[in-house]
Nucleic acid binder design. Structure first.
Length: 270
DNA sequence: ACCCTCCTGTCA
DNA sequence: TGACAGGAGGGT
């Protein structure tokens, strides 16, 4: 469940569960999730859990007698899930890829498709994503226009880039363009200043509402600690091919851009 | 600025 | 059996 609102939801839900606890150990069951060097994490405390782009960022205190602080970025990709269990007895082991044991309880990482990654960092600066968080203060529509520049990409593909805006994925890109009333087929550089403003406003409106609803959850598994979003009930166009557009009742169109589905209303979005 | 691939599962 | 799935890095 991996776009900005889902990752934000995961991070927020983990804070009260793991903050202040001491790590007993980390066991990696699937070596392919390891990226970069893996320092020793046992004995450190979890200082905080936040979101960095689409990654869940764990901040660890220094070890008693070792070097400095440590950060771990967990990227859930398509199917990664972080599940908290109080008793480590008898949890589901299918697709279990890593296990964090804390002083009480454990944090389990499940990932069916095994695209997820763990990456450790020695400094906070190194964890910073390449793009701008769309919910960050200070971002304005002029900056959107500047980032788009003369990009020849279609605006849907541009929104999916993580080196400009971070956090948008396939669901929210379609939803944002619907709210903004802009066709996903438009060349990014063709957007006007007014449309840059509509894109930014739509982005923030959609993301905030999705976060308020704990994100979008398709599969009907319920995560141990209530990681079940409800925003799927509010999706205007995503996954709704041939259903009536909520604004004009014309059938929602599905098309493929960059090998990924895009949904939009050909009547309302120009 | 694309297309493919990584991996596993589900559904028509 | 083939299309498709919330992602992104690598190659052309």
């Amino acid at each position: 469940m991996p776009e900005l609102p889902e990752v934000e939801t995961v991070a927020r839900q983990l804070v009260p569960l793991v903050r202040g606890r001491t790590v007993v150990g980390l066991r990696v069951l699937d070596p392919s999730l390891k990226h970069g060097r893996f320092p020793r994490v046992a004995g450190r405390q979890v200082v905080d859990v936040t979101r960095s782009g689409k990654r869940v960022l764990f901040h660890f205190s220094p070890c008693a007698s070792r070097d400095g602080e440590l950060w771990l970025a967990v990227h859930l990709r398509m199917t990664g899930r972080l599940i908290w269990v109080d008793e480590s007895r008898g949890p589901e082991t299918k697709h279990l890829r890593a296990r964090f044991r804390l002083d009480r309880g454990a944090l389990l990482f499940y990932d069916t498709r095994r695209f997820g990654t763990f990456r450790f960092y020695r400094s906070f600066e190194d964890t910073l994503p390449g793009g701008v968080d769309p919910l960050s203060q200070g971002l304005n529509s002029r900056e959107i226009g500047r980032m788009i520049g003369n990009s020849k990409q279609n605006i849907k593909a541009w929104l999916l880039r993580q080196d400009r805006l971070v956090g948008l994925g396939n669901i929210y890109a379609s939803e944002i363009l619907f709210v903004a009333g802009i066709s996903p087929l438009r060349e990014a550089s063709s957007l006007t200043a007014v449309e840059h403003d509509r894109v930014l406003r739509a982005t923030r409106r959609v993301l905030r509402r999705a976060i308020k609803n704990c994100g979008t959850t398709f599969s009907d598994f319920q995560d141990t600690q209530g990681l079940t979003g409800s925003y799927q009930n509010y999706l205007a166009v995503y996954g709704r091919e041939d259903e009536p557009c909520p604004r004009c009742r014309a059938p929602v169109v599905r098309l493929v851009q960059q090998q990924r589905s895009t949904y939009f209303c050909a009547q309302c979005q120009e």
